[in-house]
Amino acid sequence: MIGRLAIAACALSLTALSACGLVTSTNRSVFFVFDVSGTYVKSVPDATKIANMTVAKLLPGDWVGASQISACSFSEKEIILQRQLPTTPSLASQAQRELFEELKAYAEQVKPAKYTDIRGALAQASAELKNRPEPERFIVLFSDMVGDYSKACDTSQFELDLKGIHVIAANVIKSDPGDPKKYFDLLAEWEATVVAAGGKWSLVSSPDQLPSLVAGLQ
């Protein structure tokens, strides 16, 4: 009862202070995008584990979303989860553990897709994040970054809007070990695309870099 009253009093105070512009949010929203195309689907369990590492480092009040890159990614059907961590640390810890289970369950039952609509997935994630009030927004892409668009969902020419969003490519597997140039060209191309769309681009090469980059940890 006292706790609730305290929270109510704090909420009232915060509302009053927000009106003065003194109160700012430190929360972040993170949207994980898993590539389930034929070339990457085997890496999804590893990707979910890296996502878990990131979730473990998120702070109370942060928002987490996840979707998958399939043939037609720009769809609500592809969204796996959306959840905001409670603002109190104990409840947030509990919610984090539930998220671990959800991601683990997803990794266990993931099914491969025929095509790789990366742009559609990015548009979907961007649209979701645009609706979030958190000042820091991240899209974490677990993909080989090789797009393969079906005729039904050809979003290859779709202009992305990634203003205020930090796009992080993580666990990007090298699909053609014999042609490193192609790999680097592909990453450069995606970087140019993201920057042109108003976003910020980062490439994470080792799993421990991702939590540091998202949660701002050293």
Binding site: G3, A6, I7, C10, L14, L17, L22, V23, T24, S25, T26, N27, L59, P60, G61, D62, T87, T88, P89, S90, A92
Partner: peptide
Amino acid sequence: ERPMAEIVGEGARIGGVGL
């Protein structure tokens, strides 16, 4: 400081200081 997050919640800043 840390347990106060259980009472007032976390994620907001007042004048640059965490709640």
